[in-house]
Design a protein around this nucleic acid. Structure first.
Lengths: 148, 148
DNA sequence: AGAATTCATAGTAAATTGCTTGGGATTCCG
DNA sequence: CGGAATCCCAAGCAATTTACTATGAATTCT
């Protein structure tokens, strides 16, 4: 039950874009440096995020990425599902998919996987990038703004 | 965010033991047949479950496994954590472990992983094998008792 | 022109998953 | 008592996934 680096890096990177929302594009190498990971790897994550409509890109020098919506309109759930696929502890409870097991109606374990899925989705869908910004400002209220 | 087969098979297998609680040991091959998987693979799961004190074994012919506590005293969380390790979407939020990141107090993503972890644990710790039995009986109340 | 960037595709080493194989130890039953 | 049934233990292994790296083209700013 672990997220891969995609989801974890992705949320952190999107948070950085959120902090700079309205200030023009941010180049991936600046994020990559801060988070100490490769630009090329981030590029792959951002390709998915762009296709999902969560960010838009500006090519060429002084280009970069920016959120395509306001931070309060993007949830952690949007990011994680884009990068990791649908939240589902078991194949048989992937939402919007017709892998309906013929035992589904009688299966007691299936309802467990559904409950796990739903509780994870409830948490991540209830946290927007704006919430993260607010938390961040509260935590680092007095004194130096620690970086992520 | 998926469970491995260990967790999924494990919960199903433990549910079968729960259904037969008080009726003596169940041999793994009977479970393996019903669930259509190999005895040897189940043996590996049950080795962990036994070491964790969730089941006890009886060796030799007519032997098998049985729950070591009442079905209402074993939660899905006990089973999943035994077979999959601690629930934690990220390394930095593994409970009972001193991988304290030096940024922990200032990290906004960390609090997200904690919330995910806690909500998963809340769900799985709140479902006992007895709850599953009750659900099962309710679902299959009238008519044929479908198997798992 | 040249530097900085995104975009696209492919390759790949290491880890993990989901088993299989092979054999030993114990206990019941006939 | 012998053999079948069962648990116990350790290794091995193929397929998949993860987490990148590599290469280079396309675009845009200065």
């Amino acid at each position: 039950m672990k997220l891969s680096t995609k989801g974890r890096y992705g949320v952190k990177a999107m948070f950085e874009l959120a902090l700079a929302f309205g200030e023009g594009p941010i180049a991936l190498n600046s994020i990559a440096e801060k988070q100490n990971l490769s630009v090329h790897y981030l590029e792959q994550l951002f390709a998915s995020l762009r296709k999902a409509g969560l960010v838009k890109s500006i090519r060429g020098a002084q280009g970069g990425y920016m959120l395509s919506k306001k931070p309060e309109e993007i949830t952690v759930g949007d990011i994680i599902r884009t990068l990791e696929g649908p939240v589902a502890p078991s194949e048989c409870v992937i939402e919007d998919e017709k892998t309906e097991c013929y035992k589904a109606d009688y299966c007691v374990t299936r309802t467990i996987w559904e409950r796990i899925r739903d509780s994870i989705n409830a948490v991540v869908d209830n946290i927007t990038l704006q919430d993260m910004i607010n938390d961040y400002k509260k935590i680092n209220k007095d004194g130096y703004m620690y970086y992520i």
